[in-house]
Amino acid sequence: MADPYATLGVPKSASEKDIKSAYRKLAKELHPDRNKDNPKAAERFSEVTRAYDLLSDAQKRAAYDRGEIDAEGNPANPFAGMGRGGGFGGGGFRPEDLRGQNPFGGGGFGGEADGVDLGDLFEGLFGGGGARSARGGMGGGPFGGGFSGQQRRPPPPQKGGDIAYKLRVPFVDAATRKDQRITLADGKTIDLKLPAGLEDGTQMRLKGKGQHGPGGAGDGIVTISVDRHPFFRREGQDVRLDLPITLAEAVCGGKVKVPTVDGPVMLTIKPGTSGGTVMRLGGKGFSRKDGKRGDQLVTLEIDLPDDVTELAKRLEGWQDDRNPRGKLGV
Protein backbone atom coordinates (compact mmCIF):
# COMPACT_ATOMS: atom_id res chain seq x y z
CA MET A 1 0.00 0.00 0.00
CA ALA A 2 1.18 3.53 -0.72
CA ASP A 3 2.13 6.02 1.97
CA PRO A 4 -1.03 6.46 4.11
CA TYR A 5 -0.54 10.23 4.32
CA ALA A 6 -0.45 10.43 0.51
CA THR A 7 -3.46 8.10 0.27
CA LEU A 8 -5.54 10.46 2.45
CA GLY A 9 -3.97 13.57 0.89
CA VAL A 10 -2.74 15.04 4.18
CA PRO A 11 0.75 16.13 5.34
CA LYS A 12 2.63 14.21 8.03
CA SER A 13 1.94 17.10 10.41
CA ALA A 14 -1.84 16.65 10.03
CA SER A 15 -3.88 16.61 13.23
CA GLU A 16 -6.29 13.82 14.17
CA LYS A 17 -9.14 16.11 13.15
CA ASP A 18 -7.58 16.73 9.72
CA ILE A 19 -7.07 13.00 9.15
CA LYS A 20 -10.63 12.19 10.15
CA SER A 21 -12.03 14.95 7.95
CA ALA A 22 -10.01 13.79 4.93
CA TYR A 23 -11.12 10.20 5.46
CA ARG A 24 -14.83 11.10 5.72
CA LYS A 25 -14.65 13.10 2.51
CA LEU A 26 -12.90 10.36 0.53
CA ALA A 27 -15.04 7.58 1.98
CA LYS A 28 -18.18 9.43 0.97
CA GLU A 29 -16.91 9.91 -2.59
CA LEU A 30 -15.56 6.37 -3.06
CA HIS A 31 -18.11 4.23 -1.21
CA PRO A 32 -19.10 1.16 -3.29
CA ASP A 33 -22.81 2.00 -3.01
CA ARG A 34 -22.11 5.16 -5.02
CA ASN A 35 -19.72 3.54 -7.47
CA LYS A 36 -21.33 0.22 -8.36
CA ASP A 37 -20.01 0.41 -11.96
CA ASN A 38 -16.51 1.46 -10.98
CA PRO A 39 -14.47 -1.38 -9.38
CA LYS A 40 -11.42 0.89 -9.11
CA ALA A 41 -13.37 3.11 -6.74
CA ALA A 42 -13.97 0.09 -4.47
CA GLU A 43 -10.23 -0.68 -4.44
CA ARG A 44 -9.45 2.95 -3.68
CA PHE A 45 -12.08 2.92 -0.91
CA SER A 46 -10.30 -0.06 0.71
CA GLU A 47 -6.92 1.71 0.47
CA VAL A 48 -8.34 4.85 2.06
CA THR A 49 -9.91 2.83 4.89
CA ARG A 50 -6.64 0.97 5.59
CA ALA A 51 -4.71 4.26 5.62
CA TYR A 52 -7.17 5.78 8.08
CA ASP A 53 -7.08 2.67 10.27
CA LEU A 54 -3.30 3.08 10.64
CA LEU A 55 -3.15 6.86 11.09
CA SER A 56 -6.11 7.04 13.49
CA ASP A 57 -4.28 4.72 15.88
CA ALA A 58 -1.76 6.89 17.75
CA GLN A 59 0.63 4.01 18.49
CA LYS A 60 0.58 2.64 14.94
CA ARG A 61 1.03 6.14 13.50
CA ALA A 62 4.03 6.83 15.73
CA ALA A 63 5.59 3.47 14.82
CA TYR A 64 5.07 4.19 11.13
CA ASP A 65 6.60 7.68 11.44
CA ARG A 66 9.66 6.14 13.12
CA GLY A 67 9.98 3.62 10.28
CA GLU A 68 9.31 0.63 12.56
CA ILE A 69 6.30 -0.62 10.54
CA ASP A 70 5.22 -0.26 6.92
CA ALA A 71 1.94 1.04 5.52
CA GLU A 72 0.29 -2.36 6.10
CA GLY A 73 1.27 -2.30 9.79
CA ASN A 74 3.95 -4.99 9.38
CA PRO A 75 7.46 -4.76 10.87
CA ALA A 76 9.73 -2.81 8.53
CA ASN A 77 12.40 -5.53 8.93
CA PRO A 78 10.60 -8.78 8.03
CA PHE A 79 13.34 -10.94 9.58
CA ALA A 80 13.39 -9.12 12.95
CA GLY A 81 12.68 -11.31 15.96
CA MET A 82 12.89 -14.71 14.18
CA GLY A 83 14.54 -16.22 17.26
CA ARG A 84 11.48 -15.18 19.29
CA GLY A 85 8.83 -16.48 16.93
CA GLY A 86 8.76 -13.36 14.71
CA GLY A 87 7.12 -13.47 11.31
CA PHE A 88 7.58 -12.48 7.72
CA GLY A 89 6.07 -9.24 6.43
CA GLY A 90 4.46 -8.82 3.06
CA GLY A 91 1.27 -7.72 1.44
CA GLY A 92 -2.15 -9.25 1.74
CA PHE A 93 -2.41 -12.25 3.99
CA ARG A 94 0.94 -13.73 5.00
CA PRO A 95 2.69 -15.91 7.62
CA GLU A 96 3.92 -13.98 10.62
CA ASP A 97 5.19 -16.76 12.83
CA LEU A 98 7.36 -19.49 11.34
CA ARG A 99 8.20 -21.39 14.49
CA GLY A 100 10.38 -24.46 14.35
CA GLN A 101 10.08 -27.47 16.59
CA ASN A 102 12.63 -28.44 19.27
CA PRO A 103 12.40 -32.20 19.91
CA PHE A 104 14.10 -31.78 23.31
CA GLY A 105 11.68 -29.09 24.62
CA GLY A 106 12.58 -25.65 25.94
CA GLY A 107 13.08 -22.50 23.89
CA GLY A 108 16.32 -23.24 22.05
CA PHE A 109 14.69 -23.54 18.66
CA GLY A 110 11.65 -21.33 19.35
CA GLY A 111 9.31 -24.34 19.15
CA GLU A 112 6.79 -25.85 21.51
CA ALA A 113 7.56 -29.54 22.09
CA ASP A 114 7.17 -31.79 25.08
CA GLY A 115 10.32 -32.39 27.16
CA VAL A 116 12.08 -35.79 26.98
CA ASP A 117 12.66 -37.82 30.16
CA LEU A 118 16.41 -38.63 30.46
CA GLY A 119 15.41 -42.03 31.73
CA ASP A 120 13.77 -42.68 28.38
CA LEU A 121 17.03 -41.83 26.64
CA PHE A 122 19.01 -44.31 28.75
CA GLU A 123 16.44 -47.00 28.12
CA GLY A 124 16.59 -46.37 24.40
CA LEU A 125 20.40 -46.76 24.48
CA PHE A 126 20.71 -49.80 26.72
CA GLY A 127 17.53 -51.73 26.08
CA GLY A 128 15.52 -50.55 29.09
CA GLY A 129 15.80 -50.28 32.86
CA GLY A 130 19.13 -48.39 32.95
CA ALA A 131 17.90 -45.35 34.79
CA ARG A 132 15.96 -47.43 37.29
CA SER A 133 18.89 -49.76 38.04
CA ALA A 134 21.06 -46.80 38.87
CA ARG A 135 18.60 -45.96 41.61
CA GLY A 136 17.35 -49.41 42.64
CA GLY A 137 20.21 -51.88 42.37
CA MET A 138 21.25 -54.49 39.81
CA GLY A 139 18.82 -57.04 38.46
CA GLY A 140 18.96 -59.59 35.68
CA GLY A 141 20.08 -58.92 32.13
CA PRO A 142 23.16 -59.51 30.04
CA PHE A 143 25.32 -57.34 32.33
CA GLY A 144 24.08 -58.85 35.58
CA GLY A 145 22.52 -55.48 36.36
CA GLY A 146 19.37 -53.49 35.90
CA PHE A 147 19.11 -53.62 32.14
CA SER A 148 16.07 -55.87 32.04
CA GLY A 149 15.52 -55.61 28.31
CA GLN A 150 12.06 -54.00 28.68
CA GLN A 151 11.82 -51.38 25.93
CA ARG A 152 9.40 -48.52 25.47
CA ARG A 153 8.01 -47.38 22.18
CA PRO A 154 9.83 -44.42 20.64
CA PRO A 155 7.99 -41.07 20.86
CA PRO A 156 5.88 -40.20 17.84
CA PRO A 157 7.51 -37.93 15.24
CA GLN A 158 6.94 -34.24 15.75
CA LYS A 159 4.46 -32.29 13.66
CA GLY A 160 5.54 -29.16 11.80
CA GLY A 161 5.07 -25.76 13.41
CA ASP A 162 1.95 -23.61 13.12
CA ILE A 163 1.93 -20.56 10.85
CA ALA A 164 0.17 -17.35 11.91
CA TYR A 165 -1.81 -15.24 9.45
CA LYS A 166 -3.60 -11.90 9.79
CA LEU A 167 -6.80 -11.34 7.79
CA ARG A 168 -8.42 -7.91 7.44
CA VAL A 169 -12.14 -8.18 6.68
CA PRO A 170 -14.28 -5.25 5.46
CA PHE A 171 -17.06 -4.30 7.88
CA VAL A 172 -19.90 -5.26 5.49
CA ASP A 173 -18.24 -8.60 4.60
CA ALA A 174 -17.88 -9.42 8.30
CA ALA A 175 -21.56 -8.65 8.97
CA THR A 176 -22.78 -10.71 6.00
CA ARG A 177 -20.12 -13.45 6.43
CA LYS A 178 -18.89 -13.16 2.87
CA ASP A 179 -16.19 -15.69 1.95
CA GLN A 180 -12.66 -14.25 2.09
CA ARG A 181 -9.83 -15.36 -0.20
CA ILE A 182 -6.44 -15.63 1.48
CA THR A 183 -2.97 -16.58 0.24
CA LEU A 184 -1.09 -19.21 2.24
CA ALA A 185 2.64 -19.46 2.87
CA ASP A 186 3.06 -21.93 -0.01
CA GLY A 187 1.47 -19.47 -2.45
CA LYS A 188 -1.82 -21.33 -2.72
CA THR A 189 -5.11 -19.49 -2.19
CA ILE A 190 -8.23 -20.70 -0.39
CA ASP A 191 -11.70 -19.23 0.19
CA LEU A 192 -12.26 -18.92 3.93
CA LYS A 193 -15.81 -19.19 5.28
CA LEU A 194 -16.30 -16.74 8.14
CA PRO A 195 -17.78 -18.25 11.32
CA ALA A 196 -21.01 -17.24 13.02
CA GLY A 197 -20.38 -14.98 16.02
CA LEU A 198 -17.39 -13.32 14.31
CA GLU A 199 -15.66 -10.70 16.47
CA ASP A 200 -12.63 -8.48 15.96
CA GLY A 201 -9.72 -10.71 17.06
CA THR A 202 -11.48 -14.03 16.31
CA GLN A 203 -8.99 -16.81 15.49
CA MET A 204 -9.58 -19.65 13.03
CA ARG A 205 -7.51 -22.85 12.77
CA LEU A 206 -6.72 -24.26 9.33
CA LYS A 207 -5.81 -27.93 9.80
CA GLY A 208 -2.66 -29.01 7.99
CA LYS A 209 -1.87 -25.54 6.60
CA GLY A 210 1.25 -25.00 8.71
CA GLN A 211 4.88 -26.08 8.31
CA HIS A 212 5.70 -29.63 7.23
CA GLY A 213 7.30 -32.00 9.72
CA PRO A 214 8.09 -35.71 10.10
CA GLY A 215 4.81 -36.24 11.94
CA GLY A 216 2.72 -34.24 9.48
CA ALA A 217 1.98 -30.60 8.84
CA GLY A 218 1.12 -28.08 11.55
CA ASP A 219 -1.87 -25.76 11.33
CA GLY A 220 -2.51 -22.25 10.06
CA ILE A 221 -3.81 -19.84 12.71
CA VAL A 222 -5.78 -16.96 11.18
CA THR A 223 -6.45 -13.88 13.35
CA ILE A 224 -9.24 -11.71 11.95
CA SER A 225 -9.52 -7.93 12.29
CA VAL A 226 -12.71 -6.16 11.17
CA ASP A 227 -12.22 -2.85 9.35
CA ARG A 228 -14.07 0.29 10.37
CA HIS A 229 -16.88 1.72 8.26
CA PRO A 230 -17.50 5.39 7.41
CA PHE A 231 -21.07 5.44 8.76
CA PHE A 232 -21.97 2.01 10.22
CA ARG A 233 -21.01 1.26 13.85
CA ARG A 234 -21.10 -2.08 15.61
CA GLU A 235 -22.77 -2.43 19.01
CA GLY A 236 -22.62 -6.06 20.11
CA GLN A 237 -24.33 -7.96 17.31
CA ASP A 238 -26.33 -4.88 16.20
CA VAL A 239 -25.35 -2.27 13.63
CA ARG A 240 -26.05 1.41 14.34
CA LEU A 241 -26.58 4.17 11.77
CA ASP A 242 -27.35 7.90 12.11
CA LEU A 243 -29.74 8.76 9.26
CA PRO A 244 -30.26 12.42 8.23
CA ILE A 245 -33.82 13.39 7.21
CA THR A 246 -35.27 16.72 6.11
CA LEU A 247 -37.62 18.82 8.23
CA ALA A 248 -40.38 18.16 5.71
CA GLU A 249 -39.88 14.37 6.02
CA ALA A 250 -40.03 14.66 9.81
CA VAL A 251 -43.19 16.80 9.79
CA CYS A 252 -45.11 15.20 6.93
CA GLY A 253 -43.69 11.67 7.04
CA GLY A 254 -42.87 9.56 4.01
CA LYS A 255 -40.61 6.79 2.74
CA VAL A 256 -36.84 7.22 2.70
CA LYS A 257 -34.02 4.97 1.46
CA VAL A 258 -31.74 3.59 4.16
CA PRO A 259 -28.36 1.86 3.62
CA THR A 260 -27.87 -1.52 5.34
CA VAL A 261 -25.07 -4.09 5.23
CA ASP A 262 -27.34 -6.12 2.90
CA GLY A 263 -28.06 -3.16 0.58
CA PRO A 264 -30.52 -0.23 0.64
CA VAL A 265 -34.09 -0.67 1.94
CA MET A 266 -37.09 1.67 2.20
CA LEU A 267 -38.05 2.97 5.66
CA THR A 268 -41.43 4.53 6.47
CA ILE A 269 -41.34 7.65 8.66
CA LYS A 270 -44.53 8.63 10.47
CA PRO A 271 -45.71 12.27 10.32
CA GLY A 272 -44.48 14.29 13.29
CA THR A 273 -41.40 12.15 13.92
CA SER A 274 -38.89 13.87 16.21
CA GLY A 275 -35.14 13.94 15.76
CA GLY A 276 -33.41 11.26 17.84
CA THR A 277 -36.11 8.66 17.16
CA VAL A 278 -34.59 5.16 16.87
CA MET A 279 -36.07 2.72 14.36
CA ARG A 280 -35.21 -0.98 14.18
CA LEU A 281 -34.56 -3.05 11.05
CA GLY A 282 -34.65 -6.71 12.07
CA GLY A 283 -31.96 -9.15 10.93
CA LYS A 284 -29.62 -6.53 9.45
CA GLY A 285 -26.80 -6.90 11.99
CA PHE A 286 -23.94 -9.34 12.70
CA SER A 287 -24.44 -13.08 13.15
CA ARG A 288 -24.60 -14.52 16.64
CA LYS A 289 -22.95 -17.86 17.41
CA ASP A 290 -26.27 -19.62 16.82
CA GLY A 291 -26.39 -18.15 13.30
CA LYS A 292 -29.20 -15.68 14.00
CA ARG A 293 -28.44 -12.08 13.13
CA GLY A 294 -28.73 -8.92 15.18
CA ASP A 295 -30.63 -5.81 14.04
CA GLN A 296 -29.82 -2.43 12.54
CA LEU A 297 -30.77 0.52 14.76
CA VAL A 298 -31.43 3.72 12.80
CA THR A 299 -31.31 7.03 14.68
CA LEU A 300 -33.15 9.80 12.79
CA GLU A 301 -31.45 13.20 12.70
CA ILE A 302 -33.28 16.25 11.32
CA ASP A 303 -30.93 17.98 8.90
CA LEU A 304 -31.68 21.67 8.24
CA PRO A 305 -30.41 23.43 5.11
CA ASP A 306 -27.37 25.68 5.37
CA ASP A 307 -29.49 28.65 4.31
CA VAL A 308 -32.66 28.78 6.43
CA THR A 309 -33.91 32.14 5.08
CA GLU A 310 -36.77 30.61 3.10
CA LEU A 311 -37.68 28.31 6.00
CA ALA A 312 -37.78 31.27 8.40
CA LYS A 313 -40.14 33.12 6.05
CA ARG A 314 -42.51 30.16 5.98
CA LEU A 315 -42.53 30.00 9.79
CA GLU A 316 -43.06 33.74 10.21
CA GLY A 317 -46.05 34.42 12.43
CA TRP A 318 -46.14 30.84 13.77
CA GLN A 319 -45.30 30.24 17.42
CA ASP A 320 -44.81 26.93 19.24
CA ASP A 321 -45.85 27.62 22.84
CA ARG A 322 -44.76 24.22 24.16
CA ASN A 323 -41.79 23.82 26.50
CA PRO A 324 -40.05 20.65 25.19
CA ARG A 325 -37.46 20.95 27.97
CA GLY A 326 -40.00 20.98 30.79
CA LYS A 327 -39.39 17.29 31.62
CA LEU A 328 -35.76 18.24 32.27
CA GLY A 329 -36.82 20.67 35.01
CA VAL A 330 -35.93 23.85 33.09
Rank of each mutant, 00 (worst) to 15 (best):
D3S: 05
P4G: 09
Y5A: 03
T7L: 02
V10I: 14
P11T: 10
S13I: 11
A14S: 13
S15E: 06
S15I: 12
E16M: 10
E16R: 09
I19S: 01
I19C: 01
A22Q: 05
R24S: 13
A27W: 05
E29Y: 07
H31C: 08
P32T: 11
P32V: 06
D33H: 01
N35E: 05
K36S: 14
D37C: 00
N38G: 07
K40A: 12
K40V: 08
K40F: 04
A42H: 08
A42N: 09
R44G: 02
E47K: 13
E47V: 01
T49A: 02
K60D: 03
R61F: 00
Y64V: 04
D65Y: 00
D65R: 08
R66C: 01
G67Y: 04
A71L: 02
A80G: 09
R84P: 00
G87P: 02
G90F: 02
L98Q: 10
R99P: 02
R99C: 05
F104W: 15
F104Q: 12
G105N: 13
G105T: 12
G106R: 10
F109W: 14
E112S: 13
L118D: 07
F122D: 10
G124T: 06
G127H: 03
G130Y: 04
S133H: 11
S133K: 09
S133L: 06
G136I: 01
G136P: 00
G137P: 05
G137H: 06
G140Q: 11
F143D: 15
G149E: 01
Q151R: 14
R152I: 03
R153K: 14
P157F: 03
R168G: 07
F171D: 09
F171C: 08
V172S: 02
T176K: 03
D179L: 10
Q180F: 00
R181M: 12
I182H: 08
D186P: 08
D186Y: 10
G187T: 05
G187Q: 11
T189P: 09
D191R: 12
L192S: 12
K193T: 15
L194R: 01
P195S: 14
A196L: 04
G197L: 06
L198W: 04
T202I: 06
L206W: 02
L206I: 03
L206P: 01
G208I: 07
K209T: 08
G218M: 06
T223K: 15
I224C: 02
R228C: 05
F231I: 11
R233Y: 06
D238G: 05
D238Q: 10
V239T: 04
L241N: 02
G254W: 04
K257S: 15
V258H: 08
P259H: 07
V265W: 00
T268S: 15
I269E: 09
T277Q: 05
T277Y: 04
M279Y: 05
G283L: 04
G285R: 05
S287L: 03
K289D: 13
R293F: 05
G294V: 07
D295P: 02
D295T: 02
D295G: 05
Q296F: 00
L297T: 07
V298N: 02
V298T: 09
T299R: 15
L304K: 01
R314W: 11
L315C: 09
E316F: 10
D320N: 14
D320L: 01
D321I: 07
R322G: 10
N323L: 13
N323K: 14
P324K: 13
R325L: 15
L328W: 13
G329Y: 11
G329S: 12
